[in-house]
């Protein structure tokens, strides 16, 4: 990654850091305005805090993906918003689709200030490489990165263990210090993917660590690691439905 790209990432971090006093309450407002609730929130936050205390970073936060605002709900679920004001590092970097990022200027600015790096999905490897290089740079700096390993929202409402990209495996292989936090988040009324969760949605959230290991090399190792993470999320989903009795 060149010096210019690094400079702009640091600038984004700096601007985000000084505006978090506004963006963090905005995050809380969105969640409260839509009446979203997380079941057993304190216990979930205690687990996340425990994992992040045991390993300061970098963390690759891998979650299932059902709506366009999953990262907002996840950020709210992981820590009380005041903690993001005290420790901006706790807010994970995100990789929204560039088209969503540019939907309107207000959303774009908010995304920029809350550590979003726009990516072009479905682009050639050279374009994807530039986004992955930024991610790798941030992870090497000990920052956390939130990523949806399926690469898109789950089309049939369940974690897709067949058609997923391997970018997450590439990050895991290239940054050995990076640990993987899998989060499964699902609203009671979420049958399939959508733009937004329904008003007043109550979510169940589960967090577990996944430690992908492989004897393979190169691209095969990346595919293997990505597969282990996606399968871990799929297993968490099965457990979720088993507990729900569905």
């Amino acid at each position: 990654m060149n010096a210019k790209a690094k400079f702009f990432l640091h600038l984004q971090y700096f601007l985000g850091r000084i505006t978090i006093i506004v963006t963090a309450p905005a995050l809380l407002c969105v969640v409260k305005l839509f009446g979203y609730r997380i079941r057993n929130l304190k216990e979930f936050r205690r687990k996340v805090s425990g994992m992040m205390s045991a390993h300061k970073g970098p963390w690759l936060i891998c979650a299932n993906h059902l709506t366009m605002i999953d990262s907002v709900v996840l950020a709210y679920a992981m820590f009380p918003v005041y903690r993001y004001i005290w420790s901006f590092k706790l807010l994970a970097w995100n990789l929204p689709e560039k088209m969503n990022f540019n939907a309107n200027k207000f959303v774009g600015a908010l995304c920029y200030l809350t550590k979003c790096i726009p990516v072009i999905r479905g682009g050639d490897r050279e374009k994807v490489k530039s986004s992955l290089e930024k991610c790798a740079y941030l992870l090497k700096k000990g920052q956390s990165l939130m990523i949806f390993p399926e690469g898109t929202r789950s089309r049939d409402g369940r974690v897709d263990t067949v058609n997923f990209p391997y970018g997450v495996g590439r990050l895991v292989r290239n940054i050995p210090k990076c640990r993987v936090m899998c989060i499964y988040l699902r609203g009671d009324g979420q049958k399939t993917y959508s733009n937004f969760p329904r008003y007043g949605e109550t979510f169940s959230a589960v967090v577990e660590e996944c430690r992908p290991t492989t004897q393979l090399k190169g691209l095969k190792a990346q595919r293997d690691c990505a597969g282990q993470i996606v399968n871990h999320l799929s297993q968490m989903e099965k457990n979720h439905f088993r507990i729900c009795g569905k």
Binding site: R121, G122, G123, D124, R125, V128, G151, N163, F164, P165, Y166, G218, L219, K220, Q222, R223
Partner: peptide, 14 residues
């Protein structure tokens, strides 16, 4: 070709 599957194609070529 789906961009994600390009890696599968490269692995199959390997």
């Amino acid at each position: 070709v789906n961009s994600a599957r390009l890696v599968d194609i490269i692995i199959n070529s390997e």
